[in-house]
Design a protein around this nucleic acid. Structure first.
Length: 479
RNA sequence: GGGGUAGUAGGGUAGCCUGGUCCAUCCUAGAGCGUUUGGGACGCUUUGACGGCGGUUCAAAUCCGCCCUACCCCA
C-alpha cells in the first residue's frame, strides 16, 4: 500500500520535520496525497492505532460521562449568539450556503467545535438541579479553515478525531472541580500512552473564546517546540446566559448553570509518534500498537512446513491470550521483515526457526533491540512480561528526554538558550506587557502559569522583566 | 500577511535555460518465473508519469498566461 523503499533509510530524527512527514506514510499512518489542502487519509494501520488510542480515552471518559453525538451543521443564528466565541472563530469557519442549487435561508456552519450545537439542546434537557451534573462527550470531526501551514495530525482543516466533553453544573465551584477532574483524566490518558505533558493555565488573551479560564496540556516535541495536546475550559455562566441554560434549585429559584468543556484531538497521536519514534520508524506503546507481536518464521526450503506449523501454533496461543499478533510468512529475507515491522512500531518480534524448535525456545526482540530467549513452554507469559517491561522502558526514556528539555531561566539570555532545547521556566508577574517583552524577538509564546509538573518547582520569585513578585511560567516555541 | 522555489510512473529523480534526436533517463516500488532465507538477496521478463485549463508554434515536458497544489524564507 505505502511500501517503504527497502533500501533508503528514513531521514534522521534530528531533521524532525522531514522525519515526521516520511514516517507517517512509510509506517502507513496517514496518506497526505488527498487533493484538498489540510485533509488527509488514515491508512488502515494508522486507523487501527487511532482506534486503540481512542479506546483508552473512551474507557476513561466512560467512568463518569456518557457518549453522545450531535450534528455536524450548526445554523448561523445559533452559532452567532455568543459574541466572544464568534470572534474567536469567525475567520476559520466553513459555511454551507446551498442545498443543491438553492441558496439556504439560514447558512449552516461546519462545527469548528460544538458548544453552539450542544448548548441549546442542553437548555432543553436541564430543568432542575436533579438533572445536574450533566456530563456528556462525543468523538467527532470538526472543521477549521486553517490558513497557516497545515500538517497531518497537527494542523488540519478537518480534525477527524475530536473528543470533546461538555459538562453542566450547579455552581462555579463545582465546575472548577470538574476542570480538575478533566486534568487528572487527561494526565492518566497521556501516562497510558507514555507521553509526558505539562499542564498550565493559559494567559487570559490565549484562553478559549468564551471561557473564564483555560488549562492546557503541552507535550515537548523532539525539536523542542511544544504541541498543545489537550485543553480544559471553565466556561463559567457565559454560555448558559447566552443559551438560557438554567435550572431550578432546591428552593424553587431559577439559576444559571455553570459549564466546562474539554477536548483532545489526534494531536495526541502526533505527540506519541514524535516523542517515541526513532531513526528506524515508529515506537509504539504495546497497549495501542496495531500489531503487538509479530512472528517471523526463519524458513529454509527443506523445513518450511515444520517452521510455519510451529509459528502458527505459537500464534494461536498468543492470540488466545488476547494479544494482537501476526505471522509474517512472506517470501522475503528475514532482515527485510525486521525493518518492515520496526518501521511500523511493533513492540515485540518473535523469531522462530529450526534452532529454536530444536532447543525448545523462541527468540524475542523488543523494539529497542533487546534480545531475550524465552522458553517455548512459557512463551505467552514471557511475552506478556516483556511487553510490560518494554512499556516501562518507553515511559522512562520519554521522561528522561522531557526533563532534559525543561530548563529554568533567570535571564532573557538563558531563556533564549532554553527554548532552543525545549521549555524555558521563567518567573513572570502575570502582566501582558511583560509577556510581550518575553515573546518579543524570541519567536516564543508564554504558554501559561500555575504550572502542573513534577519537574517544575512552584516557587515564587521576581519577574524576569519587571522584577515584581512573580511565579513560574512556561515559555516555548510552539506548533 | 509578504516574498521565493518547484510540480515528470506508487515513491525519488534526469531532461526544461537553448522547442524537434523524448512513443521521456536512472534508482526504487508493483506483477511473473527461478534460485535464496537467523538483519534490507540475486538473475531474467514485464507494468507504469510530463498537476489542470488555455495560448504561441509545422512541432511543447521544455516558451507564455491563469488556476490548483506543495515546500522554503521573512513578519
Amino acid at each position: 500500500m505505502a511500501d517503504e523503499s527497502t533500501v533508503t533509510a528514513l531521514p534522521a530524527k534530528e531533521n524532525f520535520s522531514e522525519w515526521y512527514n516520511d514516517v507517517l506514510w512509510r509506517a502507513e499512518i496517514m496518506d497526505v496525497r488527498y487533493p484538498v489542502k489540510g485533509l488527509y487519509v488514515w491508512y488502515p494501520h494508522g486507523f487501527s492505532l487511532r482506534r486503540s488510542t481512542y479506546a483508552i480515552l473512551r474507557e476513561l471518559m466512560d467512568r463518569e460521562h456518557e457518549e453522545t453525538l450531535f450534528p455536524l451543521l450548526i445554523p448561523e443564528d445559533q452559532f452567532m449568539k455568543e459574541a466572544e466565541h464568534i470572534k474567536g472563530f469567525e475567520e476559520e469557519v466553513y459555511w454551507v450556503t446551498h442545498g443543491g442549487l438553492t441558496p439556504l435561508d439560514v447558512k449552516l456552519a461546519l462545527r469548528p467545535t460544538s458548544e453552539t450545537a450542544i448548548y441549546p439542546m442542553y437548555a432543553l434537557w436541564v430543568r432542575s438541579h436533579a438533572d445536574l451534573p450533566l456530563k456528556l462527550y462525543q468523538i467527532v470531526n470538526t472543521f477549521r479553515y486553517e490558513t497557516k501551514h497545515t500538517r497531518p495530525l497537527i494542523r488540519l482543516r478537518e480534525i477527524t478525531s475530536f473528543k470533546e466533553a461538555h459538562t453542566v453544573h450547579a455552581t462555579w465551584e463545582e465546575a472548577k472541580e470538574q476542570v480538575e477532574t478533566a486534568i487528572s483524566l487527561y494526565s492518566e490518558f497521556y501516562d497510558r500512552i507514555c507521553v509526558p505533558i505539562i499542564f498550565s493555565k493559559r494567559p487570559d488573551w490565549d484562553k478559549f473564546p468564551g471561557a473564564d479560564y483555560t488549562m492546557a496540556a503541552d507535550a515537548i516535541m523532539p525539536d523542542g517546540r511544544t504541541l498543545q495536546v489537550g485543553t480544559c475550559h471553565h466556561l463559567g455562566d457565559n454560555f448558559s446566559k447566552t443559551f438560557d441554560l438554567s435550572y431550578e434549585d432546591e428552593n424553587g429559584e431559577r439559576k444559571l448553570a455553570h459549564q466546562t468543556c474539554y477536548g483532545i484531538s489526534e494531536r495526541c497521536i502526533a505527540a506519541m509518534i514524535s516523542i517515541h519514534g526513532d531513526d528506524k520508524g515508529l515506537v509504539l506503546p504495546p497497549e495501542v500498537a496495531p500489531v503487538q507481536v509479530v512472528i517471523v518464521p526463519i524458513i529454509m526450503k527443506k523445513n518450511a512446513e515444520t517452521v510455519i506449523a510451529a509459528a502458527k501454533e505459537l500464534e494461536k496461543e498468543i492470540k488466545a491470550a488476547g494479544l494482537r499478533v501476526k505471522i509474517d510468512a512472506r517470501e522475503l529475507r528475514p532482515g527485510a521483515k525486521y525493518y518492515h515491522w520496526e518501521m511500523r512500531g511493533v513492540p515485540l518480534r518473535i523469531e522462530i526457526g529450526q534452532r529454536d524448535i530444536d532447543g525448545g525456545t523462541v527468540m524475542a526482540v523488543d523494539r529497542y533491540g533487546v534480545k531475550t530467549a524465552v522458553k517455548r513452554a512459557e512463551a505467552v507469559a514471557g511475552i506478556k512480561s516483556l511487553l510490560e517491561a518494554f512499556k516501562a522502558e518507553m515511559k522512562a526514556r520519554a521522561m528522561t528526554k522531557a526533563v532534559s528539555q525543561i530548563n529554568t531561566a533567570s535571564t532573557i539570555e538563558e531563556a533564549k538558550a532554553a527554548v532552543e532545547k525545549g521549555v524555558a521556566v521563567v518567573q513572570w508577574c502575570g502582566y501582558k506587557e511583560c509577556a510581550d517583552a518575553i515573546e518579543q524577538g524570541l519567536d516564543v509564546s508564554v504558554l501559561g502559569s500555575e504550572v502542573r509538573s513534577e519537574h517544575i518547582a512552584d516557587k515564587e520569585g521576581r519577574c524576569i522583566i519587571c522584577g515584581k513578585p512573580a511565579k513560574p511560567a512556561i515559555v516555548a516555541r510552539t506548533y
